[in-house]
Write a protein that binds this DNA or RNA. Structure first.
Lengths: 362, 362
DNA sequence: TTGTAGGCGTTATCAC
DNA sequence: GTGATAACGCCTACAA
């Protein structure tokens, strides 16, 4: 039959694995049931009032062990699940933690989100991710909607720049986590690093290696601007000749980096090193340099930022400034957990280390 | 001051851009207000009953133009936002669409999610993403929670294998989108492609190019198994010698591919081509081949799947089987929109094309 | 086209 | 430690 379908240009069906229900007792909770039980049903079955069931779930310590056990049984018999909307409406709380990334494409953000999710999901929170797409209007809309959505906490892979949004977030009165930068005045919690120092490290490294005529490729705004600021500071301090800045506002792909290096050479050939605001751009630049038969690093040195997992696999390997994004996410998760469980947070702003990884490219 | 901080080993603060509130009238809705207005407040201000406000929001056609205008004004004066939990509790509906990806790391999934989000957000839905982490137990837990969460629709970058989960999803009675495969019996809606055909295409291409001793690197389960099935079918049909399968259950990074090719050579040197279940693995294999001074494709041909954005940037370029993930996501979004707006969906299972992109590696 | 009445399922509050 | 009562904010059902 597949052969007939193929002959007529139709796709072959995939024989997707099906795992029958009988086999899944391993994963599901054994006694669960399809129907939609209410707290009242559980209460009746356990011979208690609904509120006691609610307490047994939220504050087990306040219910006698005997009733707690009866309720536990009744819950598993009925397959009862709390209705999160009813609960949220009455209590003003949910167990949802939201993370917003500017860009789902970034490996670094994905790692951080995963690290944070791992910590919070372990504690029973539901972790969901949204995109801000580098857009202020979308960020504003999202932050407006948080007021009514009542998440337990919110995390951003970035810092919030609009004062009004900062104010809105503060007034939510929930833990707010900012990351990926090191501002003086975070909204609430912070796990980040100094982008200025990242730029400084890049310039210092290039200066140490004897490069003198340098350029920058990256976004004009946000963190890119901070990295550039640090970079230029050190250029001035150490007498490097900052030749040129290539503004590249699409920074999500290798081809953006390749095109940017091409644009750079349209402007000048008189450079010996380039700092790329992230590793994807740097890898693209590396590719373009190779295409132009330039030897890296002797004809052109390239240094990146962010430790893409391909950085070490290329030849020459990409010299870059790494952060441990997964650990950053875990720290963020742990700090959020402290707030959520009412513990005092001694240091609401945590710094994570930048590490220069020297490979062949600079 | 920064210099002192640096001297003592402390990080430099980032001077993050701050955009004051006065400047953001451009982005926010001009008349919005901080406070938490209720539908009742809007109704009073507009001189109508609360239910009329509700109608003006949900079914504007059923409210006279004059009142609609008064209500619109009152809403913007009060900054009223519907409470989604109250709304969900009463109506059993939300405007949240959830997407679940097995792996936030994949460029392809990120593109698909973005395509889908773009369509649904335009229509006013809130689009959030969760991770299933290739885990059945987590997938099951997530699907259980959907019952109470009442999303407007759900999308998966994959198909659901556990019968019980398929049943749970069906009983939600909301649009369910599966993707990334082409099964005979999707749960509800499908935008996918034949993984079996992808494997067949790979084998046919290798056979056409004269390669005879082939191997496979990829996951044992899920779509990897389907691609392998198609690949082996054609190997048998065309007399290719299938030498070896390297099971690699971590498929998220280039280094996994590199290690897998090394493991392959531990088993046999007698191969001339390898099919990698995704491009990240294939790129890793390419790196490892280069490290071993093998010439690609004459010593070893490599073919991938999925069109990572670096595939075309390498040299030799990676020959791969591409799908347009962003378009897939958009199709999925459009199909979901049809269901959500009550239009009939003529073809609930849509097929997207596989395209063999021949570059240098095979 | 508009409005009235009532309840969605849970939990805060207060009383015992 | 336990329970009765009421209310969270909105929208369905029905009536006018």
């Amino acid at each position: 039959m597949d052969n007939e379908r193929r002959a007529s240009g139709e796709p072959t069906f995939d024989d997707v694995v099906r795992i029958p229900s009988t086999a899944d007792a391993t994963w599901g909770d054994p006694e669960s049931v399809v129907g939609t039980a209410l707290i009242e049903d559980v209460a009746r079955l356990a011979g208690v009032a609904p509120i006691t069931v609610s307490r047994a779930i939220r504050q087990p310590g306040k219910v006698s062990a005997e009733k707690r056990e009866r309720i536990r049984l009744a819950i598993s018999q009925t397959g009862y699940k709390t209705n999160p909307h009813a609960s949220a409406l009455r209590s003003g709380r949910t167990n949802i933690v939201l993370a917003f990334v500017s860009n789902l494409f970034s490996q670094q953000f994905a790692l951080a989100v995963r690290g944070c999710a791992q910590v919070l999901e372990k504690a029973g929170y539901q972790f969901l991710v949204g995109q801000t797409s580098y857009s202020y209007s979308k960020e504003t809309a999202i932050i407006q909607s948080l007021q009514a959505l009542k998440p337990a906490a919110v995390m951003f892979t970035g810092v919030i720049e609009l004062e009004r949004n900062r104010e809105s977030l503060r007034s939510l009165d929930i833990p707010i986590m900012e990351t990926w930068a090191y501002p003086r005045d975070p909204i609430d919690l912070l796990v980040g690093f100094s982008n200025t120092d990242a730029g400084r490290m890049a310039a210092n490294h290039l200066a140490d290696r004897g490069y003198r005529r340098v350029a920058y490729i990256g976004r004009r705004g946000g963190r890119g601007a901070l990295r550039l600021k640090g970079f230029r500071e050190v250029c001035a301090e150490r007498g490097l000749d900052f030749k040129c800045e290539i503004v590249c506002d699409e920074v999500e792909s290798v081809s953006d980096g390749r095109r940017s290096l091409a644009r750079l050479f349209d402007q000048t050939n008189d450079i010996d090193a380039v700092f790329c605001a992230n590793d994807l751009l740097a890898i693209g630049a590396l590719m373009e340099a190779r295409r132009r038969k330039l030897t890296v690093p002797s004809d052109l040195a390239i240094i990146g930022f962010g430790e893409n997992d391909m950085a070490g696999e290329l030849s020459p390997g990409l010299t870059t400034i790494a952060i441990d994004s997964f650990a950053l996410g875990q720290f963020a998760g742990e700090m959020l957990m402290q707030r959520l469980s009412g513990e005092p947070v001694d240091h609401p702003a945590r710094h994570v280390e930048l590490t220069l990884i020297e490979r062949g490219s600079a």
